[in-house]
C-alpha cells in the first residue's frame, strides 16, 4: 500500500524515481512534501522549479505546478514566476553544481533581492548526472573523474554564501537529520523573503565510490557522527568540536520581501 503522503503529493505514475540506491535525494524530496503538507498549502498554488542535474529531476515526481528549466537557471525562471504571480509559493530545487557553479550568480542576486523564493539545495558534493565530476562543494583533496589526482579547488559553503548575499533565512542540515530537515524546510517555506536550506546529501555511486567512503549506510553514519548543531558546538570544549561540521538554522530575520515591495510600488503609482 502506498503511503498517504505519497498519494497526496506525488505523481504516482512517474515513480519509481531515477535516483541510485542509497542516494539521499528521495529523503530530501519527501521532506519537502511533508513540509508542504504541514503548512496546508494548496497544491494548485505551489510551483516547484529546478535546473539540471540529479536533484532537478525531483519536480517531475511532485504533483504541483512544476518547471524543469535549463542548467543553473532555476532561480532565474523562479524569479519570473514569483514576481509575475506572487500568490504562488515557489520552491526551487537545485544541486550544488546547478546552484553554486553555473547558477551561482542567480543565487547571490535572488538572495540580495530577498525575493520570496525557497531554495532547497541537494548538496551531494559532485556532479552525479554526468558521472562524477568535481563541483564547487567537492572538498579539497577529494577525487572526482575530473580531479583524478585530488581536487585542488577550495569548496564553497553554500549556506554562508547565501547569508553573505542577503538571504534572510538559511539553514544547513544533512540527509541523516531528517527531523531537523523537516523543521527547517517548513520554516524556510513559511518565511517571507529569500530562504535557503542546504541539505547535505550522499552520492554513494560516484562521490562515495571514487573517494572510498563505503556504503550508503556508512556515508549516512558519517553524517550522523560528524554534523552537530552550531549552537551545541558553541557549548562544547574545543577538543570535542574538532573535526565536526556545523549545521543548524544560521539566520532567520525579517526584512522587506521583493514582490511585496513591487506590489507596494504599483499601489503607490495608482494615486
Amino acid at each position: 500500500m502506498n503511503h498517504p503522503l505519497a498519494e497526496s503529493y506525488f505523481r504516482m505514475d512517474k515513480l519509481p524515481h531515477i535516483w541510485c540506491p542509497g542516494c539521499s535525494h528521495g529523503i530530501i524530496m519527501a521532506s519537502i512534501a511533508r513540509a508542504i503538507d504541514r503548512l496546508g498549502l494548496d497544491k494548485d498554488n505551489v510551483c516547484i522549479v529546478s535546473g539540471i542535474g540529479c536533484s532537478s529531476r525531483a519536480p517531475g515526481y511532485m504533483d504541483f505546478n512544476t518547471l524543469h528549466t535549463t542548467h543553473g537557471r532555476a532561480l532565474a525562471f523562479a524569479t519570473g514566476v514569483k514576481l509575475a504571480n506572487p500568490k504562488l509559493e515557489v520552491i526551487v530545487i537545485s544541486g550544488d553544481g546547478d546552484l553554486s557553479a553555473i547558477g551561482g550568480n542567480h543565487l547571490i542576486h535572488a538572495a540580495r533581492r530577498n525575493i520570496g523564493l525557497t531554495t532547497i539545495c541537494f548538496n551531494n558534493n559532485i556532479y552525479g548526472m554526468t558521472g562524477g565530476q568535481y563541483s564547487p562543494t567537492t572538498p579539497t583533496g577529494d577525487k572526482a573523474t575530473t580531479a583524478p589526482y585530488g581536487n585542488i579547488d577550495k569548496p564553497f559553503d553554500i549556506t554562508k554564501l547565501a547569508i553573505g548575499a542577503g538571504a534572510t533565512y538559511a539553514a544547513k542540515v544533512t540527509a541523516f537529520h531528517v527531523t531537523q530537515m523537516d523543521k527547517y524546510i517548513e520554516s524556510a517555506i513559511a518565511h517571507k523573503g529569500f530562504s535557503l536550506v542546504e541539505a547535505i546529501a550522499v552520492c554513494p555511486t560516484y562521490y562515495g565510490r571514487k573517494n572510498r567512503k563505503g556504503s550508503a549506510v556508512e556515508m549516512m553514519t558519517w553524517l550522523k557522527d560528524h554534523y552537530i548543531d552550531f549552537k551545541v558546538a558553541e557549548k562544547l570544549p574545543p577538543e570535542k568540536r574538532e573535526g565536526k561540521e556545523l549545521m543548524g538554522e544560521f539566520i532567520n530575520v525579517d526584512a522587506p520581501e521583493y514582490t511585496a515591495l513591487y506590489d507596494a510600488l504599483i499601489d503607490r503609482l495608482k494615486d
Partner: peptide, 17 residues
C-alpha cells in the same frame, strides 16, 4: 536581472503564469 540569461529566463517564468 543580474545578467542576460536570467533576463530571458525570468520572462519565460512569467509567461508560464
Amino acid at each position: 536581472m543580474e545578467d542576460e540569461i536570467s533576463g530571458i529566463a525570468a520572462a519565460i517564468g512569467a509567461s508560464l503564469t
